[in-house]
């Protein structure tokens, strides 16, 4: 093996390089974050042993709640057809030109929908569905973007510079 230390007076403790890899591996195996692994949650004694029985009981209880409807089935069909005819007649009598279009939906309704339906999309997910290749920057920006603006934005909004250049291992 090539001796890398043939021109300088420094020395290392005996066996230093042999132990170095081992020590390094040990340090790498140590936890790399201070976030605790134990969360403090516990379960009642023998909870998991009894869960199958509990589920079966719940399933059984749900089954017994079902009331058969077959006896009255023919009346339902008759009632449904009468209701359908009445509904169609009612709809036809209304002003047909008053068809609801997308524009009629108040913006607030749409906003409420997004609010209530937890469309928690990250920028990555949005980027996946929006065809970025076909977009021009002018499509989404009303003002022209110049270098100063970008630098200003990054200056004000970047807490950790490393985040701009993320690389991950699985």
């Amino acid at each position: 093996m090539k001796d890398f230390n043939n021109k300088n007076p420094f020395k290392t403790p005996e066996g230093y390089f042999e132990d170095f890899s081992r020590g390094l591996m040990k340090r790498l195996a140590e936890k790399d974050t201070d976030i605790p692994r134990n969360e403090g949650f516990i379960v009642p004694d023998a909870y998991f042993e009894g869960i199958h029985k509990d589920i079966l009981q719940k399933l059984e209880a749900e089954k017994t709640k079902v009331i058969p409807l077959h006896r009255y089935k023919k009346y339902y069909f008759a009632a449904a057809s009468i209701a359908a005819v009445a509904l169609v007649a009612f709809m036809l009598n209304r002003n047909l030109s008053q068809e609801i279009t997308f524009e009629d939906i108040a913006n607030i309704d749409i906003e409420n929908y997004f609010e209530d339906n937890s469309l928690d999309l990250s920028t990555y997910e949005i980027a996946e569905v929006v065809p970025v290749d076909e977009l021009e920057i002018g499509d989404i920006l009303s003002k022209e973007l110049n270098e100063d603006m970008i630098l200003n934005y990054l200056d004000n909004n970047t807490e950790n510079f490393e985040e701009l250049n993320m690389e991950y291992d699985e």
Partner: peptide
């Protein structure tokens, strides 16, 4: 059923 300390 939570036995966590201050850290947890």
């Amino acid at each position: 059923y939570f036995e966590g300390d201050a850290i947890q």
